[in-house]
Amino acid sequence: MQEAGDLGWWGVAIAVIGGAFRVSTPYIFVSLGEVITEKSGRVNLGLEGILVMGAMSAFAVAVMTGSPWLGVLAAGIAGALLGAVHAAISNLPRVNDIAVGIALFIFGIGLAFFLGKPFTPVAGPILPHISLGAWSAFPQVRNALEINALFILGLVVAGLVYWGLKNTRWGLMLRVCGDSSDAALAMGLNVNYVRTVATMVGGFLAGIGGSFLSLYYPGGWNEGLSSGQGLMAIALVIFARWNPIYCVYASLLFGAATALGPALQTAGINENYYLYGAAPYFLTLALLIYSSSPDRLLAGAPAEVSISK
């Protein structure tokens, strides 16, 4: 690329920043969803399935109605329904939520592939973006600063979740259920009900995260759309210490790592492309190793979540 040469290494940095805004969007939604679910005391490992199902439903509804925003809504609803399935099964006595999550993961992907077949060759509408880079003469900068609408929505949701966990009746109840089901029972809370709602809201957000994959540039539905963002978001929640604001930072970091390979490519560095492409996975592993320890519990982990027991 000629222009990239003009900016030199700055071109790589700008492409990484732009990539971070774009790629982080699904991470933000999925991790916020998982924060809500885990704060209630459950882990939903099925978010990858929900993400893919969200991508498919979003695209299908957007194609049929012509409105990408209806697609986003449909993705959320599909996610909430799958969340309800997870919750309903996990509510049964002696059912392990991790196992249910893995089953849901496979089920969600399978269902999406099955229902999505007719939509593979179709072109569909695309979500809008806001250009913040008009001041710059460089097309790379303008490109990088095309902020998609869902990213901004994600920031708003992160702020809302952060505020809501501290300042609303629902947020407090959620945290009680996630921290001490004994205390929740003593308060007369219906723990299963709270966890069901939390898993559905978590699924709703993860579904929206999925809609981004099929409704933002280049758009379209195919079976290789997700590359494990739903699973990595779960690692990201641990890294972010169950804090919604940290989730945004961590998502940006993961987004930047994912954007590294393509960014280097635009700068003309094609060697080791697949190695750079693996950056987010290396990052996941490194963060999990960094944040684990044989004799320490994770600070901030909801005590009822089975991974922290």
Binding site: R175, V176, D179, S180, A183, A186, M187, P302
Partner: peptide, 8 residues
């Protein structure tokens, strides 16, 4: 046994 919520 305490019924307080530990992280709050």
């Amino acid at each position: 046994h305490f019924t307080l919520v530990p992280s709050m």
